[in-house]
């Protein structure tokens, strides 16, 4: 049982929805980013999604693209992103951390070495955008063997026929992508998302969390009400891009978390 499983079991027992916050590791710089990450649990974040910057983030909109570029320009590496998790774990052994990004930096480090390092650092799960079920042998199965969750994205193009394939080998939770598109683009619509989430939930006992296109506390509440929780990324990253203080950023995160928790 990972921290993710424990967290969702607890939320379920309490009858509450989950709130997942995404930030890019090393954005705008290592120290500030670490300060933000360390502040997320107290702001009400149930699961931290920590972005691993990549030069070619094909599924991301301009907000996350620029966050990755800022982080890389400040010298962020996969090792430093792992180091952030180690630092967080010094004071927090409960909040689950999911590392999210693209495959090449992991492949470049070596899958086995990365998994050992990630487990040792205190990472609980992975979301790797460019690894569909067809490539499960690459990282998904080795990660599960190592005791890390591999969280899969389901999308509006995932039809009934394909859904079982997507759910096989998924663990931790299912991340439902609310729109066809890139991060930070169109707004998620609860009326569209609800039936899709219900369809997924009919096929799995895993929690279903919805992300992409959720920008406000109200949207977090509406979307969380038709799922097991909501993810916000770009809207938080935009505030980091504007150079807001860590306190202001965390206050915004808290408003989002409160929104999701009201659902």
């Amino acid at each position: 049982m990972t921290r993710i499983d424990a967290k969702f079991a607890k939320l379920k027992a309490e009858g509450r929805k989950g709130f997942v916050a995404y930030v890019m590791g090393g954005d705008p710089d290592y120290e500030t980013s670490l300060e933000i990450v360390k502040g997320l649990p107290a702001a009400g974040v149930d699961v931290i999604e920590l972005g691993m910057p990549f030069t070619d983030p094909m599924a991301d909109g301009p907000t996350i693209q620029l966050a990755g570029q800022r982080a890389l320009a400040q010298g962020q590496t996969l090792e430093k992103t792992l180091q952030m998790v180690r630092e967080l774990r010094k004071d927090d052994n409960e909040t689950p951390v999911v590392m999210m990004g693209y495959y090449n930096p992991i492949y470049s480090r070596g899958v086995d070495k990365f998994l050992v390092d990630a487990k040792e650092a205190g990472v609980d799960g992975l979301i790797v955008v460019d690894l569909p079920p067809e490539e499960d042998g690459e990282l998904c199965i080795p990660a599960q063997k190592m005791g890390l969750n591999f969280i899969r994205l389901a999308t509006p193009t995932t039809d009934d026929k394909r859904l079982p394939k997507v759910l096989t080998n998924t663990s931790g939770f299912v991340y439902y992508v609310s729109i066809t598109g890139i991060t930070g683009a169109a707004n998620a619509v609860a009326g569209d998302v609800g039936p899709e989430v219900a369809q997924i939930k009919a096929k799995t006992d895993l929690p279903v969390i919805v992300g992409f296109g959720i920008k406000t506390p109200e949207a977090a509440q509406t979307i969380a009400s038709v799922a097991d929780g909501a993810v916000v990324g770009s809207a938080i990253v935009e505030r980091i891009a504007k150079g807001e203080s860590v306190a202001d950023i965390l206050a915004f995160v808290k408003s989002l978390a409160d929104g999701a928790h009201r659902a």
């Binding site: 094909m58 599924a59 495959y103 955008v129 460019d130 690894l131 569909p132 079920p133 067809e134 490539e135 899969r152 994205l153 389901a154 999308t155 509006p156 193009t157 995932t158 039809d159 394909r162 997507v166 992508v177 066809t180």
Partner: peptide, 8 residues
């Protein structure tokens, strides 16, 4: 090596 949205 593509996102799930493109796989179908």
């Amino acid at each position: 090596f593509v996102s799930e949205t493109l796989m179908p």
